[in-house]
Computed example of a mutant assay.
Amino acid sequence: MSLTIIVIIILVILVVAYVAMYNGLVKYRNRAREFDSQIDVQLKRRTDLIPNLVETVKGYAKHEQETLTKVIAYRNNVTEADNLQDKVAADNKLTGALRQVFALAENYPDLKANQEFSQLMEELSNTENKVSYARQAYNSQVQQYDTAIETFPRNIIANIHHFESMNFIEIPEAEKEAPKVKF
């Protein structure tokens, strides 16, 4: 009789451990998905600000139309991207085009002094920081999730329930180089 109780206790402990590990994997995966969603939210906020920025700049820099056209095209690429990697790639191009718009302010003192332009620049800067944070948080959570599904004994549960590893957001080689500052 006591052997039966011991076997039941061991089985209960194993079931509880199994459930706890499975739920932990689900938690890690869902948190990574949440951070993926936060990236989308911040990119959406950023793309919503861009038309206002472009309209503000248009009035001051009429012959900079090519730069503004690129910004709108890249913005559209971000909103139309289907997956995180494509969104990040499109967003990287958009960031480069926005840097050109920010540089325009140096050539147009009236634009630089425009309060609406200053507010938009500040909002974009804040949003850029939030996008950066969301990317870091996503990569951190993906690292925790991937580690959890690859380590024993969770890897057994992960394989049984088809948990797939997730991809990190990576910076293209061209953007890893530090900008050159010239005086």
Rank of each mutant, 00 (worst) to 15 (best):
A81W: 03
N92V: 01
A97S: 02
L120P: 05
K112S: 08
N139P: 00
A105L: 04
L68N: 07
T79D: 07
Q136I: 13
A134P: 07
L111P: 03
K70N: 01
A73N: 13
Q115N: 04
N76L: 06
A81M: 07
F117M: 00
A90F: 11
R99D: 15
L124N: 15
A113W: 03
T67Y: 08
E128H: 10
L98N: 06
N83T: 03
H63E: 06
Q85H: 03
A90K: 08
Q115R: 00
E123P: 14
V78E: 14
H63V: 01
Q115T: 00
E66Q: 13
F102D: 13
K112E: 09
A90S: 10
N107D: 15
D86G: 06
D91E: 07
L68F: 02
T69I: 13
R99P: 06
E128L: 06
T67K: 04
A97K: 00
P109M: 07
K87E: 02
E66R: 11
A105R: 02
V101P: 08
A134V: 03
N126P: 09
V88I: 15
E106H: 11
V78Q: 14
N129H: 14
N83H: 15
V101L: 11
N139K: 05
N92W: 12
P109E: 07
N126L: 15
K130I: 14
A97Q: 01
K62E: 13
E80H: 09
E122W: 09
Y108W: 04
N76T: 08
N139L: 01
K93I: 10
Y138W: 12
G96A: 05
D82V: 06
Q100E: 13
S132G: 04
T95W: 10
N126M: 13
K130S: 15
F117D: 01
E80L: 10
E80Q: 15
Q100C: 08
L120M: 09
T95M: 11
V101I: 11
A103M: 04
V131F: 03
Q100V: 14
T67M: 06
A90C: 08
N77S: 04
E123S: 09
E80C: 12
F102V: 05
T127Y: 11
K62Y: 14
L84F: 03
N92Y: 15
E64W: 12
N92L: 07
A81N: 00
N139C: 04
F102Y: 13
N114E: 00
R99Y: 11
L94A: 09
I72A: 15
E106G: 11
Q119D: 09
L68M: 02
V101Y: 02
T79V: 01
G96N: 00
F102G: 10
Q115Y: 00
K112H: 12
D86P: 00
V78P: 09
F117A: 00
L94K: 04
A137M: 12
E116V: 06
D86M: 03
L104E: 00
A97C: 04
D110Y: 03
K112G: 03
T67F: 05
A89C: 02
K112F: 07
L84H: 00
Q65E: 15
A89R: 00
E64S: 04
Y74P: 04
V101D: 10
E128D: 12
D110E: 01
E64L: 07
A89G: 01
Q65V: 11
F102Q: 15
N76E: 09
K130D: 15
E116D: 14
V131M: 02
Q136S: 14
S125R: 03
N107S: 13
N76Y: 13
K112Y: 00
L124M: 13
K93L: 15
